[in-house]
Design a protein around this nucleic acid. Structure first.
Length: 291
DNA sequence: CGCGCAAACCGCCATG
DNA sequence: TACATGGCGGTTTGCG
């Protein structure tokens, strides 16, 4: 996913290098070739730690030290799946929230009581340190990084290339509820998609409830349970996301952007935008496009 | 900024 | 009994 990211100017912003202790790593089902050594950890801006096939193997000291050193240097470090056990072994996750594959969550919590393990999220973003659940959640996390690095438009293109949804959940929420396959009843997914594609128009909780064929009370409960935020908050986040994309990719006036994103007035839009993003719409556009 | 009003939120409880 | 639903109403939030 990283390797295919392309900016508007045609350049590829990420250089991906696979490194390891050995030149080749054989897993149950395939062999991975790692052309680079662990020394590469000290040059990387972002380090992705993959999962372990066997949770009981000893984590090599060289790897632990390499990761710690890179962390001190300020490198961004993320784990996928049971890779959280490697990060946990470095001690860096102590006192932080983290996640891992749901089958391994209990074990992680047992071994490292200092880590607040949450098995119900797709990924946890602690800024410099991030952990993600199963393999697919790793892609969600990477997409999230691309979005914060280069904006929604670039991330959207990467998502399209990978044929995956840009946001399985969202906005400002730092974690995302994982959908368990069996929990199909009353899925919010169609509603979320509808909100995402129709930011303008009537998205009051009353119409949302009607659209989702449930009561306002249930809608509210479902949203909090599955997304971590209330319905109105989710709608607001979706509108901010749309506004950001419009600011990034078009030259529409703030007035037009606010209207196209579903805000009733540009005054409200400016206020809400500043609350969520931290800057005004025009400043956001300017800094995003590079002066 | 502040005002007035409507919507949203959420604990509580009844119901199926 | 365990659980999901949804209505009520007091309080908070947010819009114009």
């Amino acid at each position: 996913l990283f390797a295919r990211v392309q900016l508007a100017g045609g350049m590829y912003p990420y250089l991906v290098k696979i490194c390891g202790l050995a030149k080749t790593v054989t897993t149950d089902h395939c062999t991975v070739v790692a052309p680079y050594t662990l020394a590469e950890l000290q040059n990387a801006d972002t380090i992705i730690v993959p999962g372990l096939a066997d949770l009981d193997v000893d984590i090599p000291d060289a790897l632990i030290h390499g990761i710690r050193k890179a962390h001190q240097r300020g490198a961004r470090i993320a784990s996928i799946c049971s890779g959280a056990f490697i990060l946990a072994a470095t001690g860096l996750l102590h006192g932080l929230k983290a996640t891992t594959h749901w089958l391994a969550a209990e074990e992680l919590s047992r071994r490292y009581p200092g880590i607040e393990v949450d098995a119900n999220v797709l990924y946890v973003d602690n800024g410099q340190l991030r952990t993600s659940a199963g393999a697919a959640a790793g892609l969600d996390l990477v997409l999230h990084m691309i979005r914060t690095d280069f904006g929604a438009a670039v991330a959207a293109r990467a998502a399209r290339i990978a044929v995956m949804p840009l946001e399985r959940a969202g906005g400002q929420a730092q974690f995302i509820e994982r959908r368990i396959p069996s929990a199909n009843h009353g899925s919010l997914q169609p509603l979320l998609v509808w909100i995402e594609t129709n930011p303008c128009g009537d998205l009051s909780v009353a119409t949302l409830a009607e659209k989702g064929a449930m009561s306002i009370r249930s809608l509210h409960r479902r949203f909090v349970e599955h997304t971590g935020v209330t319905p109105a908050r989710w709608v607001l986040n979706a509108r901010i996301r749309r506004a950001q994309e419009l600011l990034e990719t078009t030259s529409l006036s703030v007035e037009q952007v606010s209207h196209e994103s579903g805000f009733g007035s540009s005054a409200t839009f400016r206020a809400r935008f500043h609350d969520s993003v931290g800057t005004s719409p025009l400043v956001y556009r300017r800094t995003f496009r590079g002066e």
